[in-house]
Simulated assay, not measured.
Amino acid sequence: MSGPVTPQLVFVHGVGGLRDTEQQRREWLEALADGARRAGHSDVISGLTQGWLAETRFANYSDLFTDAEAQGEAAGVSHGPEDTTFLEEFVTALVDELGHQAQESDDKRASAIVEDARAQLPGVDDEQEQGAGESFRILGRALTSLLQVPGLRRSAQWASGLPLLWHLSQVGRYLGRGRAADGGAALDVRIRERVLRGTDPERPLIVVAHSLGTVVAFEALRDYGGRVPLLMTLGSPLATATAVLHRLVPQPPRTPARVERWLNFWDRDDVVVGRPRIEKWMLPNADGVLPVTERVDSDGLWVHTATKYLRQSDVAGPLVEALKK
């Protein structure tokens, strides 16, 4: 008689620079172990870190963004019209979101900062007079102003708008679906292949995705044939309707067919995340599964990191319980 099947746990990272696969896998596991301890699951700590609770893999696609084009974007000098259009839509959505939050809380200081950032956004007439590079710098300045909102100033890992804008441009590059310069597979195809590489459809697959990785995982799972007991999305831009939702494949967006449960977590001080609307804009799969969104509140700096989310007991608890089934 065969024993229980060890589940697969795949971590899918988001925006940022080059990553060390094994180091990141350890850091995410250590954060999850910390969260599991806080959630009352100290009995599984060794199982997480030593690998007998789940076979854990960190799906690293960061090198795919570090070609010559990406280096130009990092310097703020290489942007086409499609890149600029996406970034303008994304930054405008962030401004609108933070403005709405400021109104809800009657925070006059935050409202004033948001309106200052809004006034810096390029208009239609501006776009006819300036190139993509100048638009990039203008958007960077608007984001720099936006990062002065009190909650973001305490928690954001970006000191100014340009580094944040470069990271956001990775979302646009993924959604751009452009062909490779050498005629090979498009960037988004190669990224999704990294996520599913080595997975075994005969064993349950649990996916924990962060930031841009939530978009990648959502699309990667659409044709996956194995069981997915849990999809967990952290700090996701999927709810950014004007910039992200209508660019997803397939349209209209729906929960991937084999996903049995979808938990989505957001932090109010995470600048990349809009309010939880995913369940309103996502169609259910054939089993009626829709994302369930919960808010977490992190303390200190660098809120938009996967490890911040994984250390939350509300995040780690249901993840560990899914692994133990």
Rank of each mutant, 00 (worst) to 15 (best):
I45N: 08
D83R: 02
G80E: 04
T56W: 05
P150W: 00
E89W: 09
G40P: 01
E88I: 13
P81Y: 08
H100D: 11
D116S: 13
D67T: 07
D63F: 09
A132Y: 07
V95E: 14
E129D: 03
E82C: 09
S46M: 12
E55G: 07
A132K: 06
L87K: 11
A68T: 14
R141E: 15
A119L: 05
D96P: 06
Q120L: 12
R37V: 12
T49G: 01
A31V: 05
V95N: 15
Q101W: 09
G35F: 00
E30F: 09
Q128T: 14
E129N: 03
L139V: 03
L121E: 10
L32R: 03
G40F: 01
A75G: 11
A74V: 09
D43A: 12
K108N: 04
E82Q: 13
E104V: 15
G35K: 00
S145V: 15
L147P: 01
A74H: 07
Q101P: 07
H100M: 09
R118H: 03
D106W: 11
V114G: 04
G99W: 13
A93C: 11
G72K: 06
E134H: 03
V77I: 15
V44K: 02
F65S: 05
I138K: 13
Y61G: 01
S46I: 10
E104F: 05
A132V: 07
L32Y: 04
S111N: 05
T49C: 04
A132E: 15
R109F: 06
E69V: 15
T56C: 07
R137N: 14
I113L: 02
F90A: 07
E73R: 14
L64Q: 01
D116T: 14
V124N: 05
L53N: 02
G131A: 09
T85C: 15
D63A: 10
L32T: 03
E69F: 10
V77N: 08
P150S: 01
N60H: 09
E88L: 15
L146Y: 10
R137C: 13
D34N: 08
A102L: 00
P150C: 00
R153C: 01
Q103L: 13
Y61L: 01
D43N: 10
D106E: 13
G35I: 01
A119Q: 08
L94R: 14
A93K: 10
V124Q: 08
R38W: 02
G99C: 12
G123M: 06
A93Y: 11
R57V: 08
G123D: 06
A31K: 03
A102C: 01
F86N: 08
A54S: 00
G133F: 10
E82K: 12
Q120T: 08
E115G: 06
S62V: 07
R153N: 01
A33W: 05
G140F: 00
S62Y: 06
L121K: 10
V77C: 10
L87V: 13
E73P: 08
E97R: 06
E127C: 13
E82A: 14
E73W: 11
Y61R: 00
D43M: 06
D67K: 06
A119F: 04
R137L: 15
S46Y: 12
D67I: 07
D43H: 10
L143Q: 10
P122R: 05
L87Y: 12
A117I: 03
T66N: 10
V149L: 12
P150Y: 00
A142D: 02
T144P: 04
G47M: 02
F86Q: 10
H79N: 11
L98T: 08
R38K: 10
T49M: 06
V149M: 11
V95R: 14
A142V: 02
